[in-house]
């Protein structure tokens, strides 16, 4: 009895997350006002964090909230406040180019599903011990890990340098 109730709640919560992801993404792309776009993006990112959690990875869910919402979104918001100007928002009129993403993604999806049909699903979403990630990052994946850190440093320095070009003050 209670178990089935919990399962219903869980399913509804999952459906809400899916709605949040897709609805947020649609809002982010179609809204006239860039601020609405921004909050649509935040909603979608939160939803994606929920999906990660549901895939058995609380670590990634938290990292998603922390890095995307805490850093990337705040940076975007900062950019928004610095470059705000009325009358340049909204979308261009739709034309034949709108077919590109639809066709492309339908093709990709059908190809994926076709190749999935033959494969068996070896595992389902489950909680696993994620503490090994740290060892893996400092072991097998040390090189990409270090490259990422270098990339981040270079990106931050580069961003500052670019933003300072022709500074008038």
């Amino acid at each position: 009895m209670f178990a089935s109730f919990v399962h219903t709640v869980y399913t509804l919560a999952f459906a809400t997350i899916l709605l949040l992801v897709v609805g947020g993404a649609l809002l982010a792309v179609t809204a006239r006002n860039l601020i609405h776009c921004f909050f649509g993006l935040v909603g979608a990112l939160l939803g994606v964090a929920g999906l990660y959690y549901n895939l058995g990875s609380p670590l990634l869910a938290v990292m998603q909230v922390m890095i995307y919402i805490g850093a990337v979104c705040v940076a975007i918001a900062f950019g928004l406040t610095l470059t705000r100007k009325q009358g340049e928002e909204g979308m261009r009129p739709l034309d034949i180019k709108a077919a590109i993403p639809v066709v492309l993604v339908v093709a990709m999806l059908s190809a994926t599903l076709k190749s999935l049909a033959g494969r068996e699903i070896v595992a389902s979403a489950r909680k696993i011990d994620e503490s090994r990630i740290g060892w893996m990052l400092l072991g097998d994946y040390l090189l990409p890990f270090e490259l990422i850190s270098i990339l981040l440093t270079v990106a931050v320095i580069g961003a500052v340098t670019i933003a300072l070009i022709n500074r008038r003050i």
């Binding site: 670590l59 909230v65 922390m66 919402i69 805490g70 979104c73």
Partner: peptide, 18 residues
């Protein structure tokens, strides 16, 4: 008891600004 509890609290603290 969550093994990434600290990360969770810090991440959610960021939502205040939002």
């Amino acid at each position: 008891e969550l093994n990434i509890g600290l990360l969770l609290v810090v991440a959610l603290g960021l939502l205040n600004t939002l």
